[in-house]
Design a protein around this nucleic acid. Structure first.
Length: 914
RNA sequence: GCGGGAUUAGCUCAGCGGUAGAGCACUUCGUUGACAUCGAAGGGGUCACAAGUUCGAUCCUUGUAUCUCGCACCA
């Protein structure tokens, strides 16, 4: 059968199915005996995901490396799988419930909702996997993993493995080692998803904002001399004030102020430090007085130099408040609306005032329960509350006033021109401010004081830094190392608890704490406290129960356990009796773990840890990690920390980081800009090989990735060129002889020359891929196949096929067939489909995966009498000339114009004629 | 503010201590012989700027400018 046109769509589907059916991608396929191992972990795409250009690029690079190693006989594993992606997936499924008029998440309840997610996953969770297959990804799909496999409620057949147990085991181990703790901290709170998120999930974006200047009146109408001096110490302003001026961008948080802070060296406010001032919001009769304190934090030169301290709603203030033991009043609920719970404002304010006066002790729990939002603001959206507060303060005349630049006294005096301007207006500065947004929800993040679980990153960061510093783990390009160091050296505790339902539920059960107290009369009793519960952390309910028994037994006459008759028997335990003679009830932490906590265990988790599996022994630590630099902190650094903390081994040898794929002009692809390129469209139009070749060609170390479809079209053409080269060979009968792996002998100069060129190309490709220089490999191949093999060698063989001797033709056929075969082998990692197709159609009767990567060198193949490329080229031209002589072609005619020009033999008089 | 990166042909980008490279675009010519998704020929660059190191700098050093990306951030 003659070669027809190359139909990418048809070929790709057929060949991929053949590969899978033949088990070409299974771990260890094509491995030599005693082969070294090569393993790669796919960066698990979100199970909700669809393939975008970043995936296409990233997975192409992985596939190139994996195929290259597999062909070289390595025992190769490319481990695929998907990530459960807590927030993203919960968001998608919630949206879908709404679209299909199904009950909402909250109506369904936790169990039913997670069941919906499992159903959704079974239905459409495989989308991205099938898309990766279209790209040609040679993952071992039989090992496909999922970061929620094995979780309660998971269908048995969903995915192989039990990732859940691994995640839970790690949590328990880290908890037991003191690497994980729970605490009340100010965290980034996403009011849309109503969950805490980590620092990394917050995007700070500059938006237009305002800074309002308000007066906090001094208590009891006290006054002081306010003196402003310039740089030279010369007095520029002196006035008697009965207030302190405060600037804020967030007036709604004034309600939770605990103090006003000034810098200790700020002379302007020295007279009033230690005095009280009044928060100018809320009902007059219950306005709170707060102290004026000193702290290093305020900047004398910014604003008025005085800062209101709202510990529960600002990260800087939080630190000040902790230093100064200032109470932190939480003003908002989980949706960032002004709180509507608790006692009426009058009651709460009175208590707060006692605290401010030092007349009442306070603790965190008590403060957290207090609601200091005035009644009329309760339940308001935070931004509505801001408007109300501002309006109320201004109406009361407690805003700082400044000259109105628009005020025109004459005009105001003239009844016809009067516009009602006032000579002074409230001081409001328009000012760009950095505002935190949730990376998924896109709503403004609120610092919120809540109880959360944290990884004590300080304790596990050391080995992760050392491994890179001492070269155990290499990060490419090198600039990635510096970024890695910079982040890890300044690492903050990692908040890992999420108030979501889709995820690994934290394996901690709480129970009331019990303390023995000796009463005044000498009797002993137990003090039960559910506000400050004890933790029982265990991989299973039974483990937690055992701990609970140990804890509670010594504290009383608790001899045995009783099964709880409550509905939720799983999460409760009965121990007779507490102080009221009631069973002791445990309750499980409802929160789940940050998705990145589980994906941080991807390397060991997918290989079967904590079981001591053969795969773990063989493929871990993995070889290369190829991923986007945007998840260096999210994922790479955390894998480093966690693998080292859990199994005391590095997760991989080398990290290859690449940038974001941008459009042809270098702009970020985004839906709103409308410049998103769908890789599947590109595959449809140009074929997967063209997209892959373009990806490889773009992938210079540290280079920018601008995707130009013109370029992809060019590589599609390259495929056509290759196809036509095969077609030329076919027409000349080069594939008539059964395929042989043996390197054919050559006596004719062009044949001897091309063998050397092929060997040089093989060396170039190997060198390039060894150094992760995909673009070098691509350009070496492009240049060789098009510029050398097609432009020169084919031209050189024409006269031989036309008029050479039988022996010459036979030799040339053999060399040509072998040469094309070598082209296909070298191209295969980048262009697997077209090479495989040519292989199956004509060149060699086996799956290419069984074609071993060549190891010859130029020295092996180049003839001993020609040690330089120029020598070979010159010889080749001689061959052309002698062939021409045999054909009696008139002098001056050119068969290979370029060859003649290079050797400066003769001017081209009739280009391309024969 | 801290930290990366960039600046080379019209465009997009490689590269390198010793004659400046590719693709695309452009110009001219060429289609019955693998290929028009093609072939042949060709034009086009003070390698951002300045100083330094060197026999020699686009490359190394320092500085400047412009651009860009992370991280943080002043109420």
């Amino acid at each position: 059968m003659a070669l027809g046109k190359f139909n990418a769509a048809e070929v790709e589907a057929r060949i991929y199915a053949d590969w899978e059916a033949a088990g070409c991608f299974a771990a260890g396929a094509n491995a030599r005996t005693d082969a070294a191992t090569y393993s790669v972990m796919i960066p698990p795409p979100n199970v909700t995901g669809v393939l975008h250009m970043g995936h296409a690029f990233n997975n192409t690079l992985q596939d190139v490396m994996v195929r290259w190693h597999r062909m070289r006989g390595f025992d190769t594993l490319w481990q695929p799988g998907t990530d459960h992606a807590g927030i993203a997936t919960q968001m998608v499924v919630e949206r879908r419930l709404a679209e299909t008029q199904q009950p909402s998440r909250t109506k369904l309840g936790r169990d039913a909702f997670t069941q919906k997610i499992w159903e959704w996953k079974a239905e459409s969770g495989g989308t991205i996997v099938s898309q990766l297959k279209r790209l040609g990804a040679s993952c071992d799909w039989s090992r496909e993993a999922f970061t929620m496999s094995g979780a309660p409620g998971a269908p048995q057949d969903v995915s192989s493995g039990n990732f859940h147990d691994a995640v839970i085991k790690v949590f328990v181990e880290m908890y037991n080692k003191g690497l994980i703790y729970r605490g009340k901290r100010l965290v980034n709170w996403d009011p849309h998803f109503e969950t805490a998120i980590s620092d990394l999930e917050v995007e700070n974006i500059e938006v237009a904002g305002h800074m309002w200047h308000f007066k906090y009146p001094l208590a009891g109408g006290a006054t002081y001399e306010y003196v402003e001096k310039d740089e030279d110490g010369i007095e520029i302003l002196r006035e008697t004030r009965d207030y302190i001026s405060i600037a804020t961008t967030r007036p709604e948080t004034m309600l939770g102020d605990g103090a006003v802070a000034v810098h200790p060296s700020d002379e302007r406010y020295a007279p009033i430090v230690g005095k009280l001032c009044e928060i100018p919001v809320g009902p007059k009769e219950h306005r709170r007085l707060i102290p004026i304190i000193t702290d290093e934090y305020p900047d004398k030169d910014f604003g008025s130099g005085a800062v209101k301290i709202t510990g529960a709603h600002d990260f800087n203030d939080y630190q000040v408040a902790k230093r100064g033991n200032i109470p932190m009043y939480n003003l908002m609920d989980t949706r960032a609306d002004m709180r509507a719970d608790g006692n009426p404002y009058a009651v709460e304010a009175a208590i707060a005032q006692k605290i401010a006066n030092g007349e009442q002790d306070f603790d965190e729990a008590m403060i957290a329960a207090m609601n200091l939002v005035p009644d009329e603001y309760r339940g308001l959206d935070r931004f509505d509350a801001r408007k109300r507060v501002v309006a109320d303060i201004i109406a009361e005349g407690l805003a700082v006033m400044v000259d109105n630049p628009d005020f025109d006294a004459e005009a105001e005096a003239d009844p016809d021109r009067r516009v009602g301007n006032l000579p002074t207006i409230p001081k409001v500065e328009n000012k760009p401010i950095m505002q935190p947004f949730g990376d998924r929800s896109k709503v403004v993040i609120e610092p919120l004081l809540t109880d959360q679980w944290f990884v004590d990153t300080d304790k596990i960061v050391g080995p992760a830094l050392d491994a890179v510093r001492n070269g155990d783990v290499k990060i490419l390009p090198e600039s990635g190392q510096k970024v890695y160091y910079h982040w890890l050296e300044n690492i903050e505790p990692w908040c890992i608890s999420r108030q979501l339902w889709w995820g690994h539920q934290i394996p901690v059960w709480y129970g009331p704490s019990v303390t023995h107290v000796t009463n005044d009369d000498g009797t002993a009793s137990d003090d039960w406290d559910t506000q400050n519960p004890v933790h029982f952390c265990g991989a299973t309910m039974d483990e937690a129960l055992a701990q609970a028994v140990d804890y509670y037994q010594p504290s009383g006459a608790f001899g045995y356990l009783l099964p709880d008759e409550a509905e939720n028997a799983e999460a409760s335990i009965s121990i007779p009796f507490d102080e009221h003679g009631q069973p002791v009830r445990l309750w499980r932490d409802p929160d789940v773990l940050d998705t990145w906590f589980s994906s941080g265990l991807w390397p060991i988790g997918t290989l079967g840890w904590p079981e001591d599996t053969p795969e773990l022994a063989k493929y871990f630590p993995t070889s290369d990690l190829i991923t986007g630099q945007d998840i260096l902190f999210f994922w790479v650094a955390r894998m480093m920390m966690m693998q080292l903390a859990v199994v005391d081994q590095k997760p991989f040898d080398t990290v290859y980081l690449h940038g974001l794929v941008r459009d042809a002009k270098g702009k970020k692809m985004s839906k709103s800009t409308g410049n998103v390129v769908d890789p599947l469209d590109l595959i449809d139009e140009y074929g997967a090989d063209a997209l892959r070749f373009a990806s490889a060609a773009m992938a210079s170390l540290g280079g920018t990735l601008k995707l130009d479809t013109q370029r992809i079209a060019g590589y599609r053409n390259f495929g056509t060129k290759l196809w036509n080269a095969a077609s030329f060979g076919e027409r000349n009968g080069t594939f008539d002889v059964p395929h042989s792996d043996a390197i054919p002998d050559a006596t004719l100069t062009p044949n001897r020359w091309i063998k050397g060129e092929i060997a040089r190309t093989r060396e170039a490709v190997d060198t390039a891929l060894t150094d992760y220089r995909f673009n070098d490999a691509a350009s070496a191949l492009y240049g060789f196949v098009w510029g050398t093999f097609c432009d020169w060698y084919i031209e050189l063989t024409k006269p031989i096929f036309d008029s050479g001797s039988e022996a010459e033709i036979a030799e040339t056929k053999a060399v040509y067939a072998w040469g094309l075969d070598q082209c296909l082998i070298l191209l295969h990692p980048i262009m697997p489909f077209i090479t495989e197709e040519l292989w199956g159609q004509k060149v060699r009767p086996k799956r290419l995966i069984h074609a071993d990567w060549p190891t010859y060198t130029a020295a092996d193949l180049a003839a001993p009498d020609a040690d330089s490329e120029l020598g070979w080229v010159t010889g080749a031209i001689d061959a052309v000339r002698s062939a021409r002589a045999q054909m009696h072609v008139p002098a001056g005619t050119c068969i290979c114009a370029r060859a003649e020009r290079t050797a400066s033999i003769a001017p081209v008089t009739q280009p391309n004629s024969l």
